[in-house]
């Protein structure tokens, strides 16, 4: 009993500590490759591997943190409600963008994965990777993927998307703040939303709203996607 407690204390403390540390570092040097999204898991991997521990040992001590994704989902109600003026005004445009983005995301992931010879659970786990983690893990288990693997792909998408969004904005003419925000919210969930807030207040608000709504849309659509299997 005390051993299990110490185990939880050690791994949870380490996780929270590294997270806090990487947030401080990023605040000081805001480079894309110093994003806490990238640095925190890398630091943890280093420790787990060098102590010759396994994922099972690690997750045994930190699983309670993952459970908090449930209440985090509830918390999304606040930004939805606070952006209700935006929804009322632009809902047809936002809905069109979300449907187009989700469709392209799911179909292109499936097609590209098949093209390079990925199949099975890996291909399924790739499908929901462009939505926010709590929704993505939910969809993943619904359609027969591995939620933890999807979390890995969500992280890679977030890092890549925040960088790629800038490249796309520089190369293509995108006229409306609505489109610029949607691009980040749909393509790169939380990391994209953080980037959109740096570009402009409207872009940030749109990105945050679209990220939540598209997550909900995907959870509701998941039974349909499961048919693809």
């Amino acid at each position: 009993m005390p051993e299990a407690f110490l185990h939880t204390l050690f791994w949870s403390g380490l996780t929270i500590g590294f997270y806090w540390l990487s947030k401080q570092v990023y605040r000081r040097w805001p480079r894309w490759w110093l994003m806490p999204l990238a640095v925190t898991p890398l630091l943890l991997l280093l420790v787990v591997v060098s102590l010759h521990e396994s994922y099972r040992d690690y997750i045994g001590g930190t699983h309670w943190l993952v459970l908090l994704l449930g209440p985090a989902t509830v918390a999304f109600a606040i930004p939805i409600y606070e952006q209700r003026a935006l929804i009322r005004r632009y809902w047809p445009i936002l809905l069109a963008g979300m449907l187009a983005g989700s469709l392209v995301s799911i179909l292109s992931s499936w097609a590209l994965a098949s093209l390079v010879g990925l199949d099975g659970v890996i291909r399924l786990s790739l499908l929901p990777r462009s939505i926010s983690t709590p929704f993505a893990m939910e969809v993943s288990s619904e359609i027969g993927g591995i939620p933890d693997l999807t979390a890995v792909f969500v992280v890679v998408t977030g890092i890549a998307g925040a960088v790629m969004g800038d490249l796309i904005l520089a190369r293509f003419r995108i006229a409306s703040a609505l489109a610029r925000g949607s691009l980040f919210g749909l393509g790169a969930h939380g990391a994209g939303t953080a980037r959109a807030h740096q570009i402009g207040a409207t872009e940030g608000a749109v990105a945050g709203l679209v990220m939540v709504l598209v997550g909900l849309l995907n959870v509701l659509m998941a039974p349909l996607v499961a048919l693809l299997r």
Binding site: I16, T40, L65, V66, L69, T133, M137, V155, G190
Partner: peptide, 10 residues
């Protein structure tokens, strides 16, 4: 929220 899904990434 990142703190809550980082463990799954491992």
């Amino acid at each position: 929220m990142l703190l809550f899904f980082v463990p799954a990434v491992l």
